[in-house]
């Protein structure tokens, strides 16, 4: 039981970070970022290159992942999403763009890093063992703590800084924020960069444990969508709840039903559908987002 709970906290903190980036982008620009999983994979590969290949200290490699993805996110927003949102008759056109970008990033990853599964050396050795009831490698604990710290830092940023206030205003009402003198274009770009950066950060953190490969992008996006749906689209607290709930469901399901394989995910999907039938806007979401 302790083991399941620990796994749940560990998975949940990772998932919450992925969902946070997705929900931030959605809240600011009403864009469903299909490429989120691919951004996560790129983050993983950047850390792999710096830490695994070139022997740069892990923290520095992690920073490089964040910087790369933030720049990438800013460029994508500035040159692709912003003009398309302005020129399109229906705002759903951004979905096509997002899917195109997902394909594009997949192609780029394939060209630069190939199809193989990549892993990096462990950052800390050793296993935490509490009376054989709770076994957790130290690197997982470290990653979990780093993830929770990042989430706290992100919430702090959103709550107590000028940028965060501007982003929250933008998410609440775009026109009103503009009327109050918020530079909408600039903060959309910052927000998108921040969302992409979070994806890169998780990718960089998780590469030390699960490794990284090309095929991880799509399934990660789907999981992120599910978390956002559980918590409610465009709500920060919802994304965190969604991540934690999905993490726990997966940890419990995999522990109890491991002999049936994929049945855990099937059960999660089905219960999600039933949940959404009762509460379409998710736990925290505003009705019709």
């Amino acid at each position: 039981m302790e083991q399941i709970l620990a796994n749940g906290v560990y998975l949940g903190s990772q998932y919450a970070m992925i969902a946070l980036g997705l929900t931030l982008i959605f809240a600011l620009m009403n864009v469903l970022n299909f490429a989120h999983g691919q951004m996560y994979v790129i983050g993983g590969f950047v850390t792999y290159t710096f830490y695994g290949q070139w022997g740069v200290p892990f923290i520095l490699a992690l920073v490089m992942s964040c910087v790369t993805l933030a720049i990438l996110g800013a460029l994508i927003e500035r040159f692709l999403f912003a003009p398309v949102i302005k020129g399109s008759a229906r705002e759903e056109s951004t979905m096509l763009l997002a899917a195109g970008i997902a394909f594009f990033l997949d192609a780029v990853i394939l060209l630069f890093f190939g199809e193989k599964q990549r892993g990096v050396p462990k950052i800390v050795d050793g296993v935490f063992n509490y009376d054989f009831r709770l076994i957790m490698p130290y690197d997982r604990i470290l990653i979990c703590v780093l993830a929770i710290l990042s989430i706290v830092a992100f919430i702090g940023l959103m709550q107590y800084t000028k940028t965060g206030r501007a982003l929250r205003a933008l998410a609440q009402d775009r026109t009103a924020a503009q009327l109050m003198g918020v530079n909408v274009d600039r903060y959309s770009m910052i927000g998108f960069a921040l969302g992409a950066m979070l994806a890169g950060l998780v990718g960089g953190l998780l590469v030390t444990i699960t490794g990284v490969n090309l095929g991880m992008g799509g399934p990660t996006s789907i999981k992120a969508f599910m978390m956002v749906m559980i918590g409610g689209a465009g709500v920060i607290s919802g994304a965190i709840w969604g991540g934690i709930i999905l993490g726990f469901m997966e940890a419990i399901g995999l522990a109890l039903l491991y002999q049936y394989g994929d049945i855990t995910y099937l059960l999660i999907f089905v219960s999600l559908m039933i949940f959404l039938a009762i509460r379409p806007q998710g736990l925290m979401g505003k009705p019709w987002g």
Partner: peptide
């Protein structure tokens, strides 16, 4: 009963 992006996501799932 879902709309917009919620419907999109649930159909994807």
């Amino acid at each position: 009963r879902l709309r917009g992006v919620y419907f999109a996501m649930i159909t994807l799932v």
